[in-house]
Simulated assay, not measured.
Amino acid sequence: MTQPAPGPPAPWPASGGPGLAPAPWPGPDWQRAHDQAIVFGILAVTTGMLGLVFGPLALNQANRARAIGPDVGVARVLAWIGIGLAALSLLFLLGYFLFFGVMMAEMLRQLSQLSSGGTFAALGAV
């Protein structure tokens, strides 16, 4: 004797699973911290050097959200990317000013040699 084919599986109950209660909503404080963490994380990535300001703000709000309810991992990732990009742009800016500062100092040194009676040949020019 053959058994009948099984029907479709029964749907999960609204409680989230057999014998499990639904997960409670963390509340408006968590929602506010979550939203602010995401906004600050996006601002950290998109505002360049201000990522050094918005990145820590995003991490702070993500910590607050984690203390109340579920973690906000996206905000953490955005915050660290923003901090990294801001640090790289700060290094680039410092290198830029250092390079042009050295160039200006050399130019002024050569101009002072010319004004004190030097010639272009003395500067290494042909």
Rank of each mutant, 00 (worst) to 15 (best):
113 Q>S: 09
31 Q>K: 09
53 V>C: 05
76 R>H: 06
99 F>H: 11
124 G>S: 00
34 H>M: 10
65 A>Q: 04
112 S>W: 08
4 P>S: 14
98 L>F: 04
53 V>R: 09
9 P>I: 07
74 V>G: 15
105 A>T: 00
20 L>N: 13
92 F>K: 04
113 Q>I: 14
81 I>P: 06
16 G>R: 01
6 P>F: 06
96 Y>P: 04
73 G>W: 03
52 L>I: 04
26 P>Y: 07
62 A>D: 04
8 P>L: 14
101 G>Y: 04
2 T>S: 13
83 I>D: 01
48 G>W: 03
78 L>I: 02
46 T>E: 15
27 G>C: 02
55 G>H: 10
82 G>W: 01
124 G>C: 01
86 A>S: 12
70 P>A: 04
40 F>Y: 15
22 P>M: 12
28 P>G: 12
10 A>M: 14
66 R>D: 15
99 F>P: 01
106 E>H: 00
39 V>L: 12
102 V>A: 03
78 L>R: 02
7 G>W: 08
105 A>G: 03
42 I>D: 10
6 P>M: 10
33 A>R: 05
121 A>M: 06
110 Q>V: 05
99 F>A: 07
31 Q>H: 08
56 P>M: 01
118 G>D: 00
30 W>G: 04
77 V>E: 11
80 W>H: 15
66 R>T: 13
87 A>F: 09
17 G>W: 05
51 G>N: 05
104 M>Q: 09
63 N>Y: 03
34 H>Y: 15
78 L>D: 12
29 D>S: 08
9 P>D: 14
25 W>K: 10
82 G>D: 05
87 A>T: 09
32 R>T: 09
11 P>M: 07
111 L>E: 10
66 R>M: 06
10 A>C: 12
72 V>R: 01
23 A>Y: 11
97 F>G: 02
9 P>A: 11
88 L>M: 11
56 P>H: 03
23 A>K: 15
80 W>L: 14
108 L>Y: 08
7 G>Q: 07
17 G>S: 06
8 P>G: 12
77 V>P: 01
9 P>L: 12
116 S>P: 02
35 D>A: 14
49 M>R: 14
45 V>W: 02
41 G>N: 04
120 F>A: 05
51 G>M: 02
60 N>V: 10
111 L>K: 09
97 F>M: 04
16 G>K: 06
103 M>E: 07
117 G>L: 03
24 P>T: 00
105 A>E: 01
47 T>V: 04
92 F>N: 05
24 P>H: 06
